[in-house]
Design a binder for these strands. Structure first.
Lengths: 216, 216, 216, 216
DNA sequence: AATGAATGAGCTTTCATTCAT
DNA sequence: GATGAATGAAAGCTCATTCAT
């Protein structure tokens, strides 16, 4: 690297007895490291995130990262593992098209993930170069597509329907990227309420059963 | 960075007088460097692209990069500048909604950009950390949104219409990312013909004038 | 150090009350640590032996090493101190040339030191960088030379005789090194029976009283 | 490591234009690095030799070592490769027993290898942990044994004769170790003249054809 | 007595960059 | 215009050690 910095290293150490150093609370330290790591990975990507900075954010020694996560790769995976799925857990997934648009707009609106700073899906996109991580990423997005497919309630050619579900995933990813990494305005500032209308149209357009008379 | 390589360094230097050394063709050398740089930036991102590898691809000395582009940042900007806009040049932009979906599907299908290896929009997303580059990126995407807006032919609230145009941009970005960086299948393998149907529905859903009776 | 491991960390803790944790048997723990340390020092040398691995071999906490031996240096010295002399204790030293060759061949043959894995003289050669350790080492070898001298029963110039005794020491050291650290074959595999003949010739050649008519 | 230093880092830079920095002489720089590396590897062993110190000895930047030797392992191998064989080149090897003792005593006497500081065979013994290096080492010593065998002119059982040749190798190694690494006196200070007598007796004892009447 | 959290220092390696030729 | 030698700065990782509990 040898390049410039873009961050603003600040001691976080949330919830710690201020004044003194963080002492003897492995779980808390581990969690704080994860938090700081996620923040940097999402904001700066894998390469520009340095373990030294992560440790400094939390105010602990660099070697603790090795202790808890073994390596940078391990830290990244742990950050990834702790990341909420694209759209909630199993039970919470919207069960029909109508709910899907609303859920999406809420998920993608700014500030929806206060504990991550930015949308967690961005973490998935920060290349690590490790095939197993790439695989994790693919799996997560594939899962999401499958769920969208189930929620779509649409009939018809299976491949085409899956493609349409994946296009919805792509839209979600694109929105997250364009909002956070690019800062395209007004999209970057749109609230959930402003997003829901257009998203409903997209979801309907993509997932509505083909109208009678349409030729594919 | 840490270690692994993902490339396959191969001398390119196409169109050079074989046998002898590349001699004294500044313009050609410069162009070859740009080409090699784009390829790596798109495939590996900014950080994992090393100037040494770029120079080695072309078969010239590393210091030439400094001569022509001054720095890695400069090389990246030059690579970015030479990138075709998201959707063709001024005159070629589709003038109505109907054409837009088709143009998009063609643009986003694999192999559409043989000289880049992958979709050039990915180059826009490779963080450089430099604010001027970020600005370039935003500008390019903003331009595209404006043009989509013009092509949409829609009436109504200006802000909402711009938001919808930007959502289309986001979709394009998302598709490029999901195809190339993530490899989500079947989307990654879809042809222009397979993409056009769903994309038409999205474009219609997003840009069609609100049907009578709709409440926003 | 850099990276690779060459061991095969296995819990030893022989003779411990199985089932429960090693509890409160300071002497046993201390001895087990020494044993594990010797094994690693001999096999891997000083630098490549890590206290963590030694502690793990025994199954106790790393900090115990500090408690019992104060430091890595201390552990090494303790390991050295517990090492049997090159050739047995005082009373057992062979009293004449004839016995010397036989004792040597037995000492140097493989498997002669089951509790060390390799010949303990190797421990003497593992640099510690500490002058007091170097001194210990010199003293041990000097003692051995003196005893060889006494056993040689030879008359003549004192200095020359000492030199010859030290050459026998050097041979012993060389054999241990070449067998264990280098693995030179067939020497590395030779049994005591195979060694004794040649060694008898060396001992005779070196220590036999100068034949009449010889000029030194 | 994290341990003490035992050296005395001093700028060498022999043959360089004093006053200014070493400039633009790749071959000389490379050689100076090799020289410094050999010195440290022999004196301190592989682990305790740091690239920083080697570079500092020569007065150049650490990264040059990567440039010329790629890695620490590479530097070690290069140092090893440039090391003279145990006993001279092909033609120079003593052709009979009589010459062998004399050659050995000359080789093993102090100061015989001014460009190495210590006897180069010690370099062979400095573990690197790399199997290919271990193999190099074994091969070098095996070569030497074979040559001793050829020079011995002895008849008899082949295996026994090889064993005896290897014992002579072991003696050579042992003498080098005991002189340099251990500093056993008077052996460490003995001159070639003082060594030759005893060595002649050893060589005769080991390699002389079995006297008639001897049972093996 | 024993544990495990936390630290500090140092090592190899990697890169962008600069300087002479 | 072009080359290759040389530099500086940092990154990931490892280890002995110390400090609370």
């Amino acid at each position: 690297m040898a390049a410039r910095k873009t961050d603003g290293s600040a001691d976080v150490a949330a919830g710690q007895p201020a004044g003194g150093r963080r002492r003897r609370d492995a779980a808390a330290t581990r969690e704080a490291l994860l938090q700081a790591a996620r923040d940097r990975f999402i904001r700066l990507g894998y390469d520009r995130t340095t373990l030294r900075d992560v440790a400094a954010d939390v105010g602990v020694n660099l070697a603790l990262i090795k202790r808890y996560f073994d390596s940078k790769e391990g830290l990244f995976k742990a950050a990834l593992a702790g990341t909420p799925r694209f759209l909630g857990g199993a039970g919470e997934f919207p069960q029909d098209r109508a709910a899907l648009a609303e859920a999406l707009s809420r998920q993608l609106a700014a500030g929806a993930w206060p504990e991550f700073g930015e949308h967690p899906v961005l973490l998935l996109l920060r290349v690590s170069g490790d095939e197993r991580v790439d695989s994790l990423r693919r799996q997560a997005l594939r899962d999401f597509s499958r769920r969208v497919l189930e929620a779509s309630g649409a009939a018809g050619d299976d491949d085409e329907r899956l493609l349409r579900a994946e296009l919805l995933v792509a839209l979600g990813v694109g929105i997250a990227v364009v909002r956070s990494a690019v800062g395209l305005r007004p999209l970057a500032d749109a609230t959930a309420d402003e997003l829901i209308g257009p998203l409903r149209d997209v979801v309907d357009g993509l997932l509505a059963p083909p109208r009678p008379g349409d030729a594919v």
